[in-house]
Amino acid sequence: MHSIDELAALRNPLPLPGTVTPEDCYTDACEQVEEQRKKDALHLEAASDDLQVDPLLLALDDLKTQKEAIHAEIRRLLAYGREFHGSRPYGLEELARHAGYSFSGVRTAYGDKEIQYVADQIGREANRPSRTGRAKDTL
């Protein structure tokens, strides 16, 4: 197996027997993964050749980009839960438990940028004054 094929196999693991429901779809699921592996290998090879970068490093860069996007989405959802949700925000402990953050991590995970992003996306302002506004109010 060529190293690009190995990377594609790692990035697209076959399902374990007994993990596909209904069980008679297991073969189809494996075929879909094999097809995805082929597409992934072709993409990695083309990108590697085009950019003159090792395919493993490209795969790691891709995952890092995905991880950063997921963390940004979590921060936006935390902002929504604390600043936009109903008449009472979600509690820090509950959000921390579900987001994989510490109690204090939720409090500092998002800022005005995330609050503004949420407001722009849902078409309304936060229920609570912005952090900047609160800081000014307390001075």
Results as ranks from 00 to 15, higher is better:
Met1Phe: 05
His2Gln: 06
Ser3Leu: 13
Glu6Arg: 13
Glu6Thr: 10
Leu7Arg: 07
Leu7Pro: 12
Leu7Asp: 04
Ala8Lys: 08
Ala8Asp: 05
Ala9Cys: 14
Leu10Ile: 15
Arg11Ser: 15
Asn12Val: 11
Asn12Met: 03
Asn12His: 11
Pro13Lys: 08
Leu14Asn: 12
Pro15Arg: 07
Leu16Trp: 01
Pro17Met: 04
Thr19Ile: 08
Val20Asp: 06
Val20Ile: 14
Thr21Asn: 11
Glu23Phe: 09
Asp24Arg: 15
Tyr26Thr: 00
Thr27Ser: 08
Asp28Lys: 01
Ala29Met: 06
Cys30Asp: 03
Glu31Phe: 02
Glu31Cys: 09
Gln32Asn: 12
Val33Asn: 01
Glu34Phe: 06
Glu35Ser: 09
Glu35Lys: 04
Glu35Thr: 08
Gln36Tyr: 00
Lys38Gln: 14
Ala41Phe: 04
Ala41Gly: 06
Leu42Met: 12
Leu42Gly: 07
Leu42Trp: 11
His43Glu: 12
Leu44Trp: 06
Leu44His: 07
Leu44Glu: 04
Leu44Cys: 01
Glu45Arg: 10
Ala46Met: 14
Ala47Lys: 10
Ser48Cys: 08
Ser48Glu: 11
Ser48Gln: 04
Asp49Thr: 06
Asp49Trp: 09
Gln52Tyr: 10
Gln52Gly: 15
Asp54Leu: 05
Pro55Phe: 10
Pro55Ala: 10
Leu56Tyr: 10
Leu56Trp: 03
Leu56Phe: 15
Leu57His: 07
Leu57Gln: 13
Leu58Ile: 15
Leu58Val: 10
Ala59Tyr: 04
Leu63Tyr: 15
Lys64Gly: 01
Thr65Met: 10
Gln66Phe: 07
Glu68Met: 08
Glu68Gln: 07
Glu68Asp: 12
Glu68Pro: 00
Glu68Phe: 09
Ala69Cys: 09
His71Gly: 02
His71Glu: 14
Ile74Ser: 05
Ile74Trp: 03
Arg75Pro: 00
Arg75Met: 01
Arg76Asp: 01
Arg76Ile: 01
Leu78Gly: 03
Ala79Lys: 00
Tyr80Asn: 00
Tyr80Trp: 06
Tyr80Pro: 00
Gly81His: 00
Arg82Gly: 04
Glu83Tyr: 02
Glu83Lys: 03
Glu83Asn: 01
Phe84Ser: 01
His85Trp: 07
Ser87Arg: 08
Tyr90Gln: 12
Tyr90Pro: 01
Gly91Phe: 09
Gly91Ser: 15
Glu93Tyr: 08
Glu94Gly: 07
Glu94Ala: 13
Leu95His: 05
Ala96Ser: 11
Arg97Tyr: 04
His98Gly: 06
Ala99Gly: 02
Ala99Tyr: 05
Tyr101Gly: 00
Ser104Asp: 14
Gly105Thr: 03
Gly105Arg: 04
Gly105Leu: 00
Val106Cys: 11
Val106Glu: 02
Val106Trp: 05
Val106Arg: 06
Val106Asp: 10
Arg107Gly: 12
Arg107Phe: 14
Thr108Ser: 12
Tyr110Val: 07
Gly111Phe: 04
Asp112Trp: 13
Asp112Lys: 07
Lys113Arg: 13
Glu114Ile: 05
Ala119Thr: 10
Asp120Arg: 13
Gln121Asp: 13
Gly123Thr: 06
Arg124Pro: 01
Glu125Val: 00
Ala126Gly: 13
Arg128Gln: 07
Pro129Glu: 04
Arg131His: 09
Thr132Gln: 11
Arg134Pro: 04
Ala135Ser: 14
Asp137Ile: 05
Thr138Tyr: 14
Leu139Trp: 15
Leu139Pro: 09
Leu139Asp: 15
Leu139Ile: 12
Leu139His: 13
